[in-house]
Each structure stands twice: as C-alpha cells, then as structure tokens.
C-alpha cells in the first residue's frame, strides 16, 4: 500500500532543478513531483522560467544542477556522450511535447507528421503506421484532414495534429508549453477540448498556460512560478481563490476576471 503510494507520487520527479544561461539563473532549486495521471499547471509571468523548466524535463535545455526522473529512470543521468545520446533519445520517446508555435513538419502531411517518428524509431510497417495515424488523428478530430499539409490547416488544426504526433509515440508524460497562446481566440477551444479529453484518459500532463479558467477546470495542481522559483503551489481552488502569497495575488489580479 505505502510502496504503491510512493510509486505513484514518484512518477515524475524534479529534484532541485537549477538552470543558468551563463550568469543568468533561470531556475533556482525547483522541486516538483507529479503522480501518474496527475495534471499540473504552471502559471507565472513571462520570463519566470516556465518554458525552461518544461524544456529541462526532456533535456532540450539541459539542467545545470539537479535531477529529472520519469517512472523510475533518471532522464538527465550522467553518461558518456554516445551512451547519453542513446539514452536521451529513448527517454524522449516517452515524453511528448507540444509547442506554442506547433512546429509541425511543413513538408509532411498530417499523416506523415504523425507516422514519421514511429516508423523510424519503432519500425512500424506502413499498414500499422497508417492505422496509428488514423487512430491518433481521429482522437484529435483531424481524421478528415489526414492527407493535408500544415500549410492547408488553421492554427487550431495544426496544434491538434501536433498533439496527435506527440501521442503517436505513446508517451508516459505530455508537456504543453502555452499550446494555445499563438491561436486566434476562436480556435483556442478546439485545442482545449483535446487536452480535456487527454485528462479524462488519465494522461500525465504538465501544462504551462496563461488560461486560468482552463487550468482551474482541468488541473489537479497549480504551480505559480516567478523569477525562477515556485512561489506557491496547491489545488486550483486554493491557488485561484485564496492564495497565500502577495506575489501570487498580484499576478492573478492581472490575469483573472474576479481575482481574490
């Protein structure tokens, strides 16, 4: 029972994460545990280090101190260069990431965007890959556009394909970095709906967002970050309704309609 509990809370662990770009300390000793199936929102002003933290989790921005663990394996463990490359490529297959600007591959159709990595890294046959593309694009409501190029899709549609692309690797963890910030307001909801669906399917997610309503509705926990530290964290009811820290309240006054 107790071991089960530990295992659950151990699913994603960020231990004393530190990151500096030269002299600039962007992450100052951040620790965070996420249980399997949990959904954590990270909010905070621009430049507070939210993207850097997400990008550290899959080692796009390697930490300068601290450890990242996923499901019992250290992501950023120290290994000789070649071994590390193999290790990190393996780990990244298990960590899906969705970017603010989609970063779809423009020279590939939606289908090819989704199947490229599974074919290449998991040796899927053409038939299996097509079935996978249909399954994943169906899930994000993009099946009718399966053979469209990104240039033929709206922003919301691109982002949904990008989510399908990440899901196709069957990740254990999904990272969203302001997935709806670049979208026209009327296209935000279709992407939020997809993320809600993932939440219902118990996908473990860490979501950097500016949308407080969405965070309140979907997330189990909210972290408020400022200047490279976690100022305050807790369930959305607490963070949004009765935050303890003045910095949190000041931030929320700017971003919430009826702030505490």
């Amino acid at each position: 029972m107790s071991t089960d509990q530990t295992h659950l809370t151990d699913f994603v662990q960020i231990r004393h994460a530190q990151k500096a770009f030269g002299q600039l300390e962007v992450l100052k000793d951040i620790s965070l545990n996420v249980a399997r199936g949990q959904i954590v929102a990270i909010i905070g002003p621009s430049g507070s280090g939210k993207s850097t933290l997400l990008r550290a989790i899959n080692d796009l921005d390697p930490l300068t101190g601290g450890e990242i663990w996923l499901d019992g394996t250290q992501v950023n463990k120290s290994l000789p260069h070649r071994q590390y490359e193999k290790h990190i490529n393996q780990m990244r297959q298990e960590i899906g990431m969705v970017f603010q600007h989609f970063n779809l591959f423009p020279h590939m159709t939606a289908r090819e965007n989704v199947t490229m990595a599974p074919k290449m890294l998991k040796g899927l046959s053409n038939e299996a890959a097509d079935a996978l593309a249909e399954e994943q694009l169906q899930k994000v409501g993009m099946l009718e556009r399966i053979d469209y190029y990104p240039s033929q899709l709206s922003g919301g549609q691109k982002q949904r394909v990008a989510i399908a692309r990440a899901l196709a690797m069957k990740p254990k963890l999904m990272l969203f970095d302001e997935a709806t910030s670049a979208l026209d307001p009327e296209l935000v909801d279709e992407v939020n709906q997809v993320m809600k669906k993932l939440a219902e399917e118990q996908m473990t997610m860490i979501i950097v967002t500016h949308e407080m309503d969405f965070a309140a509705a979907v997330c189990d926990r909210v972290l408020f970050m400022d200047q490279g530290v976690v100022v305050e964290e807790g369930p959305p009811e607490v963070i949004f309704k009765r935050p303890e820290k003045e910095r949190t309240r000041a931030f929320l006054r700017k971003h919430l309609e009826n702030a505490p």
Binding site: N89, R92, Q93, F99, F105, A117, M120, L121, A166
Partner: peptide, 25 residues
C-alpha cells in the same frame, strides 16, 4: 530551430532529424 527541436523531442537523433526534417525543408 523549432523543427530540429520537435524532431528531437520525438526521440530522433540529430542525424535522423537532419535527414528527415531539416535537410528536406
């Protein structure tokens, strides 16, 4: 550079990402 990052995020090596994603574009 988001193209290389997206490819690496999926688990491709740098060489694979160059071959399939960056160079064709």
């Amino acid at each position: 550079k988001g193209q290389m990052e997206a490819a690496r995020t999926l688990g491709l090596s740098r060489g694979q990402a160059l071959r399939k994603v960056v160079v064709p574009q």
